[in-house]
Amino acid sequence: MAEALIPKIALPTLDPGAIGAAAPVELIEVENLSLFYGAARALKDIHFRIHERVVTALIGPSGCGKSTLLRCFNRMNDLIDGVRIEGAVKIGGHDIHGPDVDAIELRKRVGMVFQKSNPFPKSIHENIAYALRLHGIRKKSELDAIVEESLRGAALWDEVKDRLHTSALGLSGGQQQRVCIARAIAIKPEIILMDEPASALDPIATAKIEDLILDLKKDYTIVIVTHNMQQAARISDYTAFFYLGELIEYDRTRKIFTHPAKKQTEDYVTGRFG
C-alpha cells in the first residue's frame, strides 16, 4: 500500500542523512516521556532519539503536543504551573531533570526561537549583547565581534550593519525573527529549538529562514516544530509525526513522505486530514 503513494511534494534528490559512513550520534534521547497538565495527559509515552547536527522536524495537526515536547527539551515547561513529567529526557547522556541540573545552565546550551518573534525593546546590537552578557562576556570589542558574527550567521548582517543601534522593533517581521535567531546562536548553543519559526512570515521571508536553517545545521542540532509539511520535507533530515500526544512514526524524512509505515502518517502527509 505504501508503494502506491504518489509523493505529493517534491523532495530534494539528495537526502543528506543518507550520506556518511558513520552512524549519526544520538544527542537527545526521549525515554518513555509523558507530560501531564494537572490531570490531563498531553504527551503519551514518547520514545525516540534525535540525532546530532541534523534537522529534525516534529509535525502533526495542531494540539498534538509537538510544541509541548519541544519545550521539554529546554525545560520551559517548568514555567507553567501544575506540569508533571514521567519518563526522562536525556541530552548527551545526562538526564535534564536530574537533581543536579540547573535549568538556567541547560537553557544556555539549548537555545530556542519562538513562533512569534520576540526581540527585546532594545537596539539590535543590545538584543544580542544581552545574551552575551548573561554569559559573562563584557568587553566591548568582544561583544561587537560576536554580534557581527551572529548577525552574519543569521544572514542579516548586510541588511542591518548600518543600523545596529536602532531599535530591533523597527525591523520587518522576517528580520526580527532573524535577530532572534542571531541572538540564539550568539551564545553558541549545541541545540537550537525552533517553534514554527516562519509561521508568521510571508513566503519570501520564510524562504530566507529556511535557507538559514539549512546553513545552520552544519554547526548546530536543530529541532523544528512545523505545521507546514512542505517545509518539513524541504529542510529536515528526520521527521517525527505526532497525533494526539503520541508519537506515531519517526524516520528519515524521505521515508515519511514517500512510503510511511503507518496509515495515520500517510493520511496526514497526503492531506486527508489537517
Partner: peptide, 16 residues
Amino acid sequence: MTATSSSSPARRRGFQ
C-alpha cells in the same frame, strides 16, 4: 556529515 567526535561537548559535562 562529519564523523562524530569521540566525545561531543554534551557528553563531557552535565548541566550543573
